[in-house]
Every structure is written in C-alpha cells, then in structure tokens.
Amino acid sequence: MTALTTQQVEQLHTAARAAQARAHAPYSRFRVGAAVLDESGRIHAGCNVENAAYPLGMCAEALAIATMVREGGRSVRGLLVVGEGEHLVTPCGGCRQRLREFASDATPVLVADLERVRAQFTLGELLPASFGPENLA
C-alpha cells in the first residue's frame, strides 16, 4: 500500500468533512463527503448530490474524481470517504470502478466519520481482480 502521511490524511479528512457539509441529500438525509489526493499532492473534494429521479444522483467519490480531472489531475494517490452511522461508508461498486480508472490496486482508501479514520483498505481489497485501463492496452 502506498502510505499517506499523517498530514495528508488530516488534509483529506478536513476536505471530505467540508464537502459532506454541503451535500444535497434531501431524500436519504445521508450525507457523504469524499476527497482524493492526486499525483501532484493536490486535494479535490466532492459530496453526494441526490436527485428526485434517483438514478441521476451523484456519489461524493464520483464528484471528487471529476473535480480532480477538471483540475488537471490524472492519478489518485489516496481517497478518504466521510459518512455517518454505525456501519462503514465505503465506496459503492460504481465508484470503486471509477477509482480503478485513476488508481492502482495499492491505492489507500480510508473510511472515516466526522471524528476519525475508522478503517483503511487498498483499492485492490475493495475491488479484487478488477478490469482496468491496462486490459484495453
């Protein structure tokens, strides 16, 4: 696993919490924030944005990745997701595949609540034997 520094984890957590506070979740009331660290050390955050037509909603992780790409980032070096509740809020299957487009199996994926990181995985642990860009090379 590519290690993140304590400072990077704190910055990701701060950015994800700030994004979570801006989530648009009027239907589920389940607010999620996410932040990615790119290859240049920049942090890009996103929040979930729900829509009355449920399939049109957007996950926090998807928005964070899209923001990274918009800002010129091309590689995810780490991801932190903030959610509340008893259970861990890990990326959904679609977001795991989105991450795979920009991250390696060794990329750390941290899961946190408002106070602390609760668990850490690699993308490979969350999406084993994945299909990625190299499959199309």
Rank of each mutant, 00 (worst) to 15 (best):
L4H: 05
T5H: 02
Q8N: 06
H13C: 13
T14E: 08
T14Y: 00
T14R: 04
A16C: 10
A19P: 12
Q20K: 10
Q20W: 05
A23Y: 03
A25F: 08
P26F: 11
R29A: 09
V32N: 01
G33N: 00
A34T: 10
I43H: 05
I43W: 11
H44I: 11
A45P: 10
G46W: 00
A53Y: 07
Y54Q: 14
L56C: 05
G57L: 04
A60G: 09
A64I: 10
I65K: 00
I65V: 08
T67E: 06
V69I: 05
R70T: 11
R70P: 15
R70N: 05
G72T: 09
G72N: 15
G73A: 04
S75T: 14
S75E: 07
G78K: 00
T90C: 01
P91Y: 06
C92P: 14
G93I: 15
R96G: 12
R98W: 09
R98T: 11
R98L: 09
F102T: 10
S104Y: 06
T107F: 05
T107E: 10
P108I: 00
V109R: 02
L110Q: 02
L114I: 09
R116E: 01
A119D: 08
T122H: 03
P128N: 03
P128W: 04
P128S: 13
A129I: 11
A129L: 07
F131H: 15
G132S: 05
A137Q: 04
A137C: 04
